[in-house]
Design a protein around this nucleic acid. Structure first.
Length: 418
DNA sequence: TCTGGGGTCCTTTTGCCC
DNA sequence: TCTGGGGCAAAAGGACCC
């Protein structure tokens, strides 16, 4: 509610601002993976800790603030992070624990409002319009969430409160860690314009350098650039989008359930691979995994695509649309293998392969041609039996014979259950 | 510095039909 | 018959996000 005073944007958790109309909350866990990992390793508290894959090619998933001080940040190659902060403790990710903690915090959010839009395991937008009567103003709700999450899950989070998703997100980033920031409706432009262009959602390394080439360094610079200039430099869609954001215009609303558009899996080999048999086996494993996830979610997909990344990091994709949607691993694999064979590669050095299924719809609503696909029915029945066995005996209890022996070259052994 | 794995969205190219 | 081009969908690539 309005408190009469209108402070400057101020420091994290600054003086109370007018939160009327600020119905969007963005909640972001602080160093989520690292914080959750510390719950079971309390002796590491206060020390620089890096969460990341153990392999030589991993990247940093998350790091505690003690490690960030040394320049470590997520997505940084592990090698480099270790060099920057040799004293850091490196722990392997524990996805089950992250998933559990995520569930817990999302439940806290849903106790406030059903309008919760998860962005990832560790962040979400909330529309708190309907919760005011029960719980008070947006700031109050934000503070309640912060306290409750810390109380129930033992980890801290930061909350941005604003009139739009995009400003709420910037606000939570601004008050990190363990903070809350309200950007009052009347102060949006003053909040935005001093920020560097890279702060905008959708401006990464490439776009930033294009903008720098135009002499644009702050959000304010973008706001005062003719729309036609932005459209020419970045394309019509991105240009318009950035211009709108620079003035704080963001029409996107909080949506609780966004349907999946694609489901896939990919794997970077421990070392580059040039043996076609190894690639084929990996495509099979990824196809089975992808199809199993489709079946588990009751969905089917119509387009199968593969991704191949070569040793020099160049990446290509190939896709084929099927006459009929599928959730059958064998169909996905046959298609993927066909796409791969059509590349005509001869002992190319391959770093990564991936399989993805697009054009997703609900299995129940997908049209199905009875006359076709009798073989697929056989495969589907077999795979559903595997699904049942996996539920009873654990993932990986049953799998294709070619995947049984994990002692082959490259890749992760397929035995790691999730 | 040597770059994961899960995705979304946008742009450009290509093939097809009329 | 050849050529052009509009309109469309699919394919391919790439930037970006967490």
């Amino acid at each position: 509610m309005s408190r009469g005073n209108v402070p400057p944007i101020g420091p994290p958790t600054g003086p109370p601002g007018d939160d009327s109309g600020c119905t969007v909350l963005h909640v972001d866990m602080d160093a989520f993976y690292a914080s959750v990992s510390l719950l079971t390793r309390p002796e590491l508290r206060g020390r620089p800790v890096i969460v990341g894959g153990g392999g030589t090619r991993g990247v940093v998933l998350s790091a505690t603030y003690e490690a960030r001080v040394h320049g470590v940040h997520s997505a940084m190659p592990m090698m480099r992070a270790r060099r920057l902060c040799p004293q850091a403790v490196v722990v392997a990710p524990d996805h089950e624990a992250y998933s559990r903690a995520s569930h817990g915090v999302m439940e806290v959010f849903r106790s406030v409002t059903p309008l919760v839009e998860p962005i990832s395991l560790d962040e979400a937008f909330l529309d708190v319009r309907g919760a005011a009567r029960r719980m008070g103003g947006p700031r109050q709700i934000g503070e309640w969430i912060r306290a409750t999450v810390e109380d129930e899950q033992g980890i801290t989070c930061s909350v941005g409160v604003a009139t739009t998703k995009f400003v709420a997100k910037l606000a939570s980033a601004r008050c990190k860690p363990d903070g809350l920031l309200v950007v009052p409706a009347g102060e949006v432009v003053a909040f935005l314009h001093p920020l560097p262009v890279g702060a905008l959602w959708g401006v990464g390394e490439k776009t930033e350098s294009v903008l720098r080439g135009l002499g644009l360094h702050t959000v304010g610079d973008i706001a005062h650039t003719p729309l036609s200039t932005l459209e020419r430099a970045l394309g019509p869609a991105s240009g318009r989008h950035l211009a709108a954001l620079a003035w704080g215009r963001d029409e996107r609303v909080v949506v609780a359930h966004e349907p999946d558009k694609s489901i896939g899996a990919e794997n970077t080999f421990g070392t580059d691979v040039d043996d076609p048999a190894v690639v084929h086996r990996e495509l099979l494993r990824l196809s089975e995994r992808t199809a199993a996830r489709l079946r588990a979610s009751g969905q089917v997909g119509r387009t199968v695509s593969i991704k191949v990344r070569f040793a020099d990091f160049t990446t290509i994709t190939r896709a084929r649309t099927l006459p009929e949607s599928t959730d059958v691993g064998r169909v996905v694999y046959d298609t993927a293998l066909g796409l791969y064979a059509a590349l005509g590669l001869e002992r190319a050095r391959i770093r990564l392969v991936g399989v993805r299924v697009e054009g997703i719809s609900d299995a129940g609503s997908a049209p199905h041609q009875l006359a076709l696909g009798e073989r697929e029915h056989g495969w589907r029945d077999a795979e559903q039996a595997v699904d049942r066995a996996s539920r009873r005996f654990g993932a990986g209890a049953v799998r294709p014979a070619t995947l049984v022996d994990p002692s082959g070259t490259g890749g992760n052994p397929p035995t790691r259950a999730q």
